[in-house]
């Protein structure tokens, strides 16, 4: 009799083979990506690994009869939220790596132990639970999106209205926080024009060199006497040491055109 109940239970909780394959492919991938997010040093790599975890989770939502949430996960999380993260990383500085100095002694070990203990508590606590698997076939009969809409606009309508207030508050708050008061007087067109004529070059700066074999912003243009012009490349490139001298080929070509071959 116990064997029969076990069989019945197995049939009640079992999912299809295809779903098992999806889970055992994507589950380890999600865990590896999120663990990598902890371990990599650069914040951009963390962001990309988090996007990968979110995509794995989206696939799992799709596998679990939640097509609406799967699509929303991809559009909202991996699309909007991760773009926002990358955008802020760009503002704050892509290379702002973590400092490796421990401000509190033993904090790292304690944090790891706490996380491991927490995981153990959760997993062993959950492991003992007997479960049912009713499936969403009846609930999704009229389609997943109409079913969700029925719930959102009837039973959860108050919560839905509250989220609209929350979103407006968040938008206003972000505007308040990102706003900066103007401390200096606004620069007018006349000011800019006066400042330009006080410079050594009133004209725009010369463009970078255009040669037969080189046409890039890191190659300086040549002055009539054959010396490279320093103002024709960006000062940032000069400071980084990324400026390439006009190649010998370019100089020879120019000399052969003018006729004075050395």
């Amino acid at each position: 009799m116990t064997a029969t109940t076990a069989l019945v239970n197995a049939a009640a909780t079992d999912t299809g083979t295809g779903e098992a394959v999806v889970f055992w492919l994507l589950g380890p991938l999600a865990v590896i990506a999120s663990a990598g997010m902890l371990l990599v040093k650069k914040a951009v790599h963390s962001a990309l690994l988090l996007a990968m975890t979110m995509l794995c989770l989206a696939m799992m939502y799709l596998a679990q009869d939640a097509p609406f949430l799967g699509v929303v996960q991809i559009v909202v999380y991996t699309g909007a939220v991760m773009m926002l993260f990358l955008f802020v990383l760009m503002l704050v500085g892509v290379d702002s790596a973590d400092s490796l100095v421990e401000t509190l002694r033993g904090q790292r070990v304690a944090a790891l132990l706490a996380a491991l203990g927490f995981a153990g508590l959760l997993i062993f606590g959950i492991g003992d639970v007997t479960t049912v698997n009713r499936g969403l076939d009846t609930a999704n009969q009229g389609g997943n999106v109409p079913g969700l809409a029925d719930l959102i606009f009837s039973r959860y309508v108050i919560a839905f209205e509250a989220t609209s207030a929350l979103l407006i508050t968040a938008a206003l708050g972000a505007m308040m926080l990102a706003h900066r008061e103007r401390t200096a007087e606004k620069v007018t067109q006349r000011d800019r024009s006066v400042a330009r004529f006080r410079r050594p070059h009133p004209s725009p700066l010369p463009g970078p060199g255009v040669y037969a074999r080189h046409n890039a912003v890191d190659t300086p243009a040549l002055l009539p006497d054959g010396t490279p012009s320093e103002v024709s490349v960006s000062r940032v490139l000069t400071a980084r040491g990324d400026v390439r001298p006009p190649s010998a080929g370019a100089l020879e070509l120019r000399d052969s055109e003018t006729g004075d071959v050395p």
Partner: peptide
């Protein structure tokens, strides 16, 4: 496969996040 595996994965991801 028991759907409880999803919950276990979720617990694992949650503790990695914490």
């Amino acid at each position: 496969m028991n759907p409880m595996n999803y919950v276990l994965l979720s617990a694992l991801l949650f503790s990695i996040g914490s």
